[in-house]
Design a protein around this nucleic acid. Structure first.
Length: 828
RNA sequence: GCCGGGGUGGCGGAACUGGCAUACGCAGCGGACUUAAAAUCCGCCGGUCGCAAGACCUUGUGGGUUCGAGUCCCACCCCCGGUACCA
């Protein structure tokens, strides 16, 4: 019996469950993935980070989709030259824990930490190179102590302050609701109609960094993310213009608007305040009071998304009051309308229906005058049917008449400044970061309220302000901190008199704004991290995570880093140099996977059935990583078959004997080097799907060779199978380790240098070139690499199918793209 | 609504910088091996017409630029993410 064709015995078959368990245990025992702060041999650092999971309970297929390619990339970096830090932790504060607590009557900590245990065990099945000695859990006191410390630093540097802001309020449950808890304007628990209510809350001055946050130079982030963040920040240049106010009994004598079109100020025919604007109540006349009150109440029940819809018909109510347009002395009626937001600009806008479509629609509806202030060349001077676009020169504008469009804004600002009616200004859509949450399961804001000393920061030595472990949850969702006497009552750090603690906790985005700094020194009890280690490891070299975090989380962490830099805590001004946002994996029904929808595919069952390596590779193979999409498990068998073929190719005995110089040897080596090249480029470019496809083709070629029974050159074959084992190491770490060992190579495959390719060996000798006549492919030629045009042309014209389409016609043009195509353009 | 992304065979997808559309895999069909099945290996596999050679059509829809468009431009339709208290 021929040894090469024999069926392998049971012990020699690919058995993922056995080898994965074996190697995971060995790696852990050897601490293979423990990252030293100083690597021997002066290997440069590489900080690879993937977004930490929320402690939802079960590891989701989406976590594997996010983490296993990140792990492959980190492993690849490790095999090149780097000392790679690849930590993992848990985002453990947040609303779902409270919902679970209300439902089960248990403390959120119980639910959360049980979830951590379970999820960590699930994560370990992945066989990733996480350094678990650096694990961080944001809800543990030794972490949130430092989250509180950050709050105090920001407060100290005037980057934190208090002001009123509105929140959704359920009058029946007496509790604040998150946006997602409001469904069709009703409380999701009790279906009571909800409305906004104003509360005193803490803010961070992220707007101070707005301009700096617009600067992405030095960052290797995708254009999509940069563009989304730029639009979110929404920088607008224009002017603040003040309008005179003279209402009996009202002290305020002017109202300021922000406008990007100060040049149209002579065309103002109405004035609009946000319904929440503090002056509304004061200036409304008795006749208008009822209508205004009703409109304000209705506006408090609307979401911002609805209010800002440009599709919806504009509505508003006249307050009965007037302001004076200081530019021409004319009175202007003051309206309120829900499309004006209190949180943008000054919460007041001037209505110029001649040159703004929204204002035009509003004026038409309410019969307000339309005064054009530019003589647009396309406008015949008749009645307008829409707002006029930019263009022309100024009219109806007193001293500014005749100013051309191009310099109108600058001229108007200069005039306003001279007359002291206003000045040039920049406004941002970005708002300061509201961090107060009226919830229990978050890091308590370390502030104490004293009758004599107002808001007093908790001294750093008294941190952490611990969450009580005996909190009781009402079914209403009210924060238990507000009635927990032990937590609430304390003494003032300044005077020692009885005082009350702040009962609000911090937004969980705060926990995740600095966790990348804690991983570098996770057990430090003196400070959040040491300066020396920060200098060594920061910033993160490669960050990956879901596209859903493209704006908020990533803007917050950028802000935190900039603030930390200005406070002298860290050196770099950006947290992450490279960013990659992977797509979201959906349920087989195309919907977001969730327990309530019943469309969750559990990773554990996939791993049990196919093994972690197969599942990892399948997730990478599914499609481009930045796209995501519905999960369909039916193709996974293809990956399993491939790994079996790879196993057989590497472990099989193949007859040796061909000469090194034989064309077959050259062909085998070409496959090897071509594959190393493709895999290297794809992993660098984050194209995991085509990386796997290239390895499949290579494997198929090796199987074909083996099946043919032909003799191969021993060195070339060894180079091929050893390369395959090395290339498998990032995506499929377990089978790679096992094959490497079976090849008789030294442990571990994961500490080997990444294979190098030889460009000359990877190159093909001959290429197929398409021959087109008038853009239609008529034949294909096998030509030597980089064949000159005349050779290609002569060969093409020899072809019967080509000459049939060229015969009797005049060749007008020939386009030749070497190694690709020859296009003959004929006339007649 | 607004901002960002996407739409290619029955399915997931590939295609350098505008140059052979459908790589790789799944499913399906046919064959080899087997007492049989599984596994494995080999072959076929976008559509229409045709006995065939071949011809024509095809990348969400409609238009445009170009020798040549999945790729660039204009308009539109549908799907996904975000929209500031889900994380």
């Amino acid at each position: 019996m021929d040894a090469t064709k024999s069926r392998p015995g049971a012990a020699d078959r690919y058995d993922p469950q056995a080898i994965e368990k074996k190697w995971q245990a060995k790696w852990e025992a050897d601490q293979l993935y423990r990252t030293p702060d100083d690597a021997p041999g002066g290997r440069p650092k590489w900080y690879a980070l993937t977004m930490l999971p929320y402690t939802s309970g079960d590891l989701h297929i989406g976590h594997w989709f996010a983490m296993s390619p990140s792990d492959a990339a980190a492993r690849y970096r490790r095999m090149t030259v780097y000392n790679v830090l690849f930590p993992m932790g848990f985002d453990a504060f947040g609303l779902p824990a409270e919902n679970a607590a209300i439902k089960n009557g248990a403390h959120p900590a119980e639910w959360t930490f049980a979830n951590v245990e379970h999820m960590r065990a699930q994560l370990k099945l992945m066989g990733a190179m996480f350094d678990w000695s650096r694990e961080v859990i944001t809800a543990s006191p030794d972490y949130y102590r430092w989250t509180q410390w950050w709050f105090l630093q920001l407060l100290k540097h005037d980057l934190a302050y208090k002001k009123k802001a509105s929140v959704w309020w359920c009058p029946k449950d007496q509790t604040v609701l998150a946006n997602e808890q409001v469904v069709d304007g009703k409380c999701e628990r009790c279906e009571t109609v909800v409305a906004k209510r104003d509360l005193e809350q803490w803010f961070f001055r992220i707007t101070k960094y707005a301009d700096e946050l617009l600067d992405f130079s030095g960052l290797e982030w995708t254009d999509q993310v940069a563009s989304m963040q730029r639009n979110w920040i929404g920088r607008s240049e224009g002017a603040h213009l003040s309008f005179g106010l003279d209402v009996a009994g009202v002290d305020t004598k002017e109202i300021t608007v922000f406008t990007t079109r100060p040049d149209t100020v002579f065309g103002v025919s109405f004035f609009v305040l946000a319904p929440e604007h503090p002056l509304v109540e004061q200036i409304t006349t008795p006749e208008q009071r009822a209508a205004v009150q009703a409109y304000v109440n209705a506006a408090r029940k609307e979401s911002e998304i609805d209010r800002l819809s440009t599709e919806r018909e504009k509505t508003g109510v006249f307050t009965g009051a007037y302001v004076t347009n200081r530019f021409n002395g004319k009175p202007v009626p003051v309206w309120i309308a829900d499309y004006v937001l209190a949180t943008y600009g000054t919460g007041a806008v001037m209505g110029v229906p001649g040159h703004d479509q929204r204002d035009f629609d509003f004026a038409k509806k309410y019969g307000l005058p339309i005064i054009p202030v530019f003589k647009h060349p396309d406008w015949d001077g008749g009645e307008l049917t829409a707002a006029l676009p930019h263009g022309g020169t100024m009219i109806n504008s007193g001293p500014l008449d005749g100013t051309p469009d191009e310099i109108a804004v600058a001229t108007a600002i200069k005039y306003a400044e001279e007359q002291a009616f206003g000045k040039g200004a920049v406004t941002y859509r970005l708002r300061d970061w509201l961090i107060s949450r009226q919830r229990m399961w978050g890091a308590p804001i370390p502030v104490i309220y004293c009758d004599d000393h107002d808001a007093v920061p908790v001294p750093e030595k008294d941190l952490p302000v611990l969450l009580p472990d005996d909190a009781e949850f009402c079914p209403t969702g009210e924060s238990p901190l507000t009635y927990h006497q032990g937590f609430l009552n304390t003494t003032c750090p300044t005077c020692g008199k009885p005082a009350k603690r702040e009962t609000d906790t911090m937004d969980t985005f705060m926990c995740s704004s600095w966790y990348q700094m804690r991983y570098i020194d996770p057990h430090n009890e003196e400070r959040p991290f040491s300066r020396e280690l920060a200098r060594k490891w920061l910033p993160v070299d490669q960050y990956t995570g879901g596209a859903e975090h493209a704006v908020m989380h990533l803007l917050y962490t950028r802000f935190f880093t900039k603030a930390a830099r200005d406070m002298g805590i860290v050196e770099p001004g950006e947290p992450m140099v490279r960013l990659f946002n992977q797509g979201q994996i959906l349920g087989p029904d195309g919907q977001r996977m969730s327990k309530s929808r019943g469309n969750v595919v559990a990773p554990d069952s996939q791993v049990e059935r196919w093994g972690a390596d197969t599942f990892r590779a399948y997730l990478m193979f599914l499609g481009p990583w930045d796209q995501g999409g519905p999960y369909d498990a039916s193709g996974i068998t293809g990956i399993y078959r491939w790994l079996n073929r790879a196993w057989n190719a590497v472990t099989a005995h193949v007859p040796v004997g061909a000469q090194p110089a034989a064309p077959e040897t050259r062909a085998l080596r070409r496959w090897t080097h071509k594959t190393i090249k493709k895999v290297t480029e794809d992993i660098e470019d984050v194209h995991f799907n085509t990386m796997i496809a290239a390895m499949m083709e290579f494997t198929n070629e090796l199987i074909r060779l083996r099946e043919s029974g032909a003799e191969v050159d021993g060195d070339a074959w060894r180079e091929a199978v050893e390369s395959l084992a090395l290339l498998l190491a990032p995506p499929c770490p377990h089978i790679a380790e096992e094959l490497w060992q079976r090849l008789g190579k030294p442990y571990s495959v994961h500490t080997q240098p990444w294979p190098k390719y030889d460009e000359a060996l990877a190159r093909a000798d001959e290429v197929e070139v398409a021959v087109q006549v008038n853009g239609k492919v008529r034949d294909r030629l096998l030509l030597p690499l980089d064949a000159p045009e005349d050779v290609a042309r002569a060969r093409a014209l020899e072809s019967a199918s080509v000459s049939a389409h060229v015969a009797g016609k005049e060749i007008a043009r020939v386009i030749y793209v070497p190694n690709r195509l020859l296009n003959i353009v004929v006339k007649g």
